[in-house]
Design a protein around this nucleic acid. Structure first.
Lengths: 204, 204
DNA sequence: ATCTTGATGAACTTTTTGATTCATCTGAAA
DNA sequence: TTTCAGATGAATCAAAAAGTTCATCAAGAT
């Protein structure tokens, strides 16, 4: 019986080691590749990989970047996203990028095993708690590229004038964007929005 | 030969399961208690626990809280702090609270094993990379209680007037504090400070 | 006692940000 | 074509925040 080939992409070494141990104890699974960053992930992938357990929110790149690249070189590979944040934003983005499974890190291994089996069979696995959230909040906050850029720049100490100039928009539009961000995140002040975004890993 | 009794306090279930597996495979170690939060940690501790692997930054409480409480009920227990952030702030705070070991989550299990053995023998283990940082930056930014309160309140959408009133200080002093925070964190704007603090887990 | 030093609060000015209104432009629909 | 909705930018005013200066007060040092 052929084992399911798993690749782990995760920068926390202990976590990766532990997960590898748990997976290798399963009869029908085996870890056949590992990586601790987006760049090494693209190098270390091999033909035995069936499913990639991918940590969203790696230091380099947003993790979903490598999905788009890998489906070009290894079209048969399927992804299961792991994330620290129990946020639906990532689920939506990930699902747009051919990710077939989604499990938060606070889940138990049992659930990761289920996800692997189900995705390998061609199905889709969404962590139960998250599915409810997705259904309840159909229009969850997803920031656009420009909106995240705005937060990034402000988080780096630029004032609004600089940000507007950098993004080639007027001060008026910038303020409209900021209000939009606050509305999306359900907060009142820009400071609150920054804190919320940082919690969700939207700004680095 | 008596095994070292380990307690795992960690809210990411998969991580905890994997770590437990790795530890139980060691000849001289065994996981004898687990918890996924500060409150359950205080309940689940037992007499077999020698060393607690403690995740800094749990949802409830700052993790170091339970150190102070446990050394009252279980004085012989020693702590090893695990953290996501490779920040020296936590190291300093933790070392003040009788924590004898410090290992970041991006370390390998090998290093956790070394830390357990060393701390069990009465020594202190500080992750190599962090030690260098500690020596190079002797006056690393450690925010006071009041300073963190200020950031917390602002991160929750309060304006300066409200924050000042809440903390029973004048607007002048508040602004002095904000400037102080920015200086400590080496940033220019309050927004930047918020982002930096959020990255280091100083605000929730 | 005197003299610092540091912290605090008040007052003031300037800068930044927030909120609102208006005119213009574009693209889609009637 | 006209019409309308949505987005943009400019201008304006109000509010908040930042920068600065000054006087006061307390704890120590001389």
């Amino acid at each position: 019986m052929k084992k399911i080939g798993i690749m782990l992409v995760e920068d926390h070494n202990v976590f990766r080691e532990g997960l590898k141990k748990l997976i290798d104890m399963e009869e029908n699974m085996q870890v056949v590749a590992e990586a601790d960053s987006c760049t090494t992930a693209l190098q270390n992938i091999n033909a035995h990989v069936d499913i990639i357990l991918l940590d969203i929110g790696l230091p380099d790149g947003d993790g979903l970047e490598i999905c788009t690249r890998m489906i070009q070189t290894h079209p048969h590979v399927k992804f299961i996203a792991l994330t620290t944040y129990d946020d639906v934003t990532f689920v939506r983005k990930a699902m747009e990028k051919n990710v077939h499974g989604f499990v938060p890190k606070y889940a138990f291994f049992e659930e990761i095993r289920s996800a692997i089996n189900m995705v390998y069979k061609g199905g889709t696995y969404i962590y139960p708690g998250l599915q409810a959230e997705l259904l309840l909040k159909p229009d969850s906050p997803v920031l656009t590229e420009q909106e995240t850029s705005i937060l990034q720049l402000i988080a780096r100490g630029k004032d609004q004038k600089e940000v507007a100039a950098r993004l080639y928009i007027s001060l008026s539009t910038l303020r409209r964007r900021i209000r939009g961000i606050c509305t999306k995140l359900g907060v009142k002040t820009l400071e609150e929005a920054l804190a919320a975004a940082a919690r969700r890993g939207l700004v680095r």
